[in-house]
């Protein structure tokens, strides 16, 4: 499973032969916030690749920087208080961090689209859903009102909204949460984006609706070839949808692997903790497994490994020195002095 010679490499993953070139390549991204209590390094040196037509899952607890990462890609981090502190976001070869506001506006909703966690509040309550889809379409495509409306109906049909010809004139408050999330997806996909960022798209929905929305996204991805960055705290969602996974902790990537490797052979104690906290039907446990402690406060980052205060393996070196992201196998990296760890999973 693991290579014997452990390379220390903090940069890009080594190219694996048959993979197409990445569509999105995030390199050492640093997004910080200036707050009253000091500088908050929300995203601190994050790197990952997203390949065309594939799904990258980003997992982590609240506050680990996964949403800020996605907003950084979209150029939607408010500045101030946000600061572009470094790195690059290469999308189709161009660095999005170097784009002007107008250039980013032209890319957003066209080549990169995003859907959000809260379908109940993410649509404007005073406009008809069709008009909200049309608005984005006409911003990026030279379409007449009639053609844009037809396209909106077509998109609603694509996301399996019943009788789209009439629902196109509905207001958001006339729809359920699941329906609204479908509208959000229709809106996001209206201009055929190359990349779709989905920030906890199913968290606010019932479990059955969750499954429907994930199915829909997977289906549309196969049909349209859209690359997806799926942000979630739910490993179950990751297992179902992602091809590759990035685990984030306290603003950093702590482990990166393809989805099979991650579930079969996770190498970071944090990932192992996350996996252990999924309740299983085939075990009888009186209590749910948890990871002790909490994410460190942004102004009180530990000196060495950021996970060390909560880590069962931490020793003096972990408290002193920050481990680099180390290669453990093809496309598999973990930020731990102890990786590869075999013993603690026993």
């Amino acid at each position: 499973m693991t290579s014997d010679g452990v390379l220390t490499l903090d940069g890009p993953a080594p190219d694996v032969a048959p993979e197409p070139a990445p569509l999105l390549s995030v390199r050492d991204l640093r997004t910080h916030f200036r707050t009253e209590r000091g500088l908050y390094r929300a995203v601190d040196g994050v790197s990952f690749d997203v390949r065309p037509g594939r799904t990258l899952g980003i997992v982590g607890e609240s506050g680990c920087g996964k949403s800020v990462t996605s907003l950084s890609i979209m150029g939607l981090v408010p500045e101030p208080p946000g600061i572009r502190a470094g790195g690059e976001i290469l999308f189709e070869g161009e660095d999005l961090l170097k784009k002007s506001r107008a250039e980013m506006e032209a890319i957003r909703g066209d080549r990169i689209a995003m859907i959000f966690q809260e379908p109940m509040t993410s649509l404007n309550p005073v406009y008809r859903v069709g008009d909200q889809i049309v608005e984005g379409l006409r911003r990026h495509r030279a379409l007449g009102a009639g053609a844009a409306r037809e396209r909106a109906v077509e998109m609603l049909r694509l996301v399996r909204i019943p009788s789209p010809e009439t629902r196109v004139d509905a207001y958001p408050h006339e729809m359920s949460g699941g329906m609204r999330q479908r509208v959000m997806i229709a809106m996001a996909l209206a201009c055929d984006p190359r990349l779709l960022i989905a920030d906890e798209p199913t968290t606010a929905l019932d479990v059955t609706i969750q499954a429907q929305i994930l199915d829909l996204m997977g289906d549309l991805q196969r049909r349209l070839g859209t690359a997806i960055v799926l942000i979630t705290h739910d490993l179950g969602v990751i297992a179902e949808t992602a091809d590759e996974v990035v685990v984030m902790y306290a603003g950093q990537v702590v482990e990166r692997a393809d989805v099979r490797t991650l579930f079969a052979d996770a190498q970071h104690p944090y990932t192992l903790g996350l996996l252990a906290s999924i309740p299983r039907l085939d075990e009888s446990r009186s209590r749910l497994q948890t990871i002790e402690g909490a994410v460190p406060a942004p102004n009180a980052m530990p000196k060495g490994c950021r996970f060390s205060p909560r880590c069962p393996l931490a020793d003096s070196r972990c408290l002193r020195e920050e481990p680099p992201l180390r290669d453990l196998g093809p496309g598999h990296q973990a930020r731990c002095w102890y990786a590869p760890i075999e013993e603690i999973r026993a």
């Binding site: 979209m74 939607l76 506006e105 957003r108 909703g109 689209a113 649509l123 309550p125 608005e135 996001a188």
Partner: peptide
């Protein structure tokens, strides 16, 4: 949230 959505659509400020 819906203003963030509007920005995500690429609308001009």
């Amino acid at each position: 949230d819906h203003v963030r959505t509007a920005r995500a659509k690429g609308l001009k400020e």
